[in-house]
Simulated assay, not measured.
Amino acid sequence: MTTILVVDDEPELVSFVRRALEAEGYQVLTATGGAEGLRVALTKKPDLMVLDLRMPEVDGEAVMAGVLARGPATRVLILSAVADVEARIRCLEQGAVDILSKPFAIQELLVRVRSRLRMPTEKGPDDYLLRVGPITLDVRARRLRVDGSEAMLSEREFLLMQHFMRKPDMVCSRSELLAAVWGYDFDPATNVVDVCVRRLRSKMTRDVIQTVRNVGYQLQSA
């Protein structure tokens, strides 16, 4: 049975969408927050996610980046009340298969879900290469190239770097990175993010990951 995960911080909307999808014969999983949604997605591996873009703490972009880092073929349909065209374009560039504006008609959502589930999931060689400025990340080989210099990455280093590369020039908080890469909520006592960033930096010919004081980190595209 096709499984769909619905992630939104509005419980009433989640319940409404769940009932409509179940009536269509889908198995539906739900989450009412970004961190919870990411955990469910990584453990249950749904065929498609219906994902709210703006949520507190861990937003939809961070959830999508974390999910696509583990399963690049996962289909993500974004629900967004955001009118910012750049944000919507960024989501599509980062891997979303569709974006539906809020408020929306449930019949339109159902049609889009059916359409996106029919999309092929096969990827060509270039689909496994992420590029940001002078940086290239081979998703299959976990190989990082910066200015022509190559380095192999561990699993956590790779997931962290892939998250950064799906959000170039955007500030990623430590709580967001913990949720996306390690799969748990913010713990002020842990420094695993900082340690992993230091290891990444040691494998690059120049520092493209900038520290944003008291917040987190930012991957610079130029």
Rank of each mutant, 00 (worst) to 15 (best):
V6Y: 00
V7I: 15
D9S: 09
V14T: 07
V14A: 08
S15A: 15
V17L: 06
R19K: 14
T30C: 09
L38M: 05
A41V: 07
L42F: 07
T43F: 09
T43Q: 12
P46Y: 01
M49V: 14
D52Y: 02
R54S: 12
V58E: 00
D59G: 08
A62Q: 14
V63P: 03
G66W: 00
V67N: 01
V76I: 15
L77Y: 01
V82A: 11
V85R: 13
E86T: 07
R88Y: 03
L92P: 08
Q94M: 11
V97R: 04
V111S: 11
R112K: 13
G124Q: 06
P125T: 02
P125D: 00
P134R: 15
T136W: 06
T136K: 11
R143N: 11
R145P: 07
V146S: 02
V146K: 01
D147Q: 13
A151W: 05
S154F: 09
R156Q: 15
F158W: 04
L159G: 01
H163M: 14
P168T: 04
M170R: 13
V171H: 06
R174H: 04
S175P: 09
L178K: 00
A179W: 00
A180M: 02
W182D: 03
Y184T: 04
F186C: 02
P188W: 07
A189T: 13
V193A: 00
V195S: 11
N214I: 07
V215C: 11
G216T: 05
L219V: 06
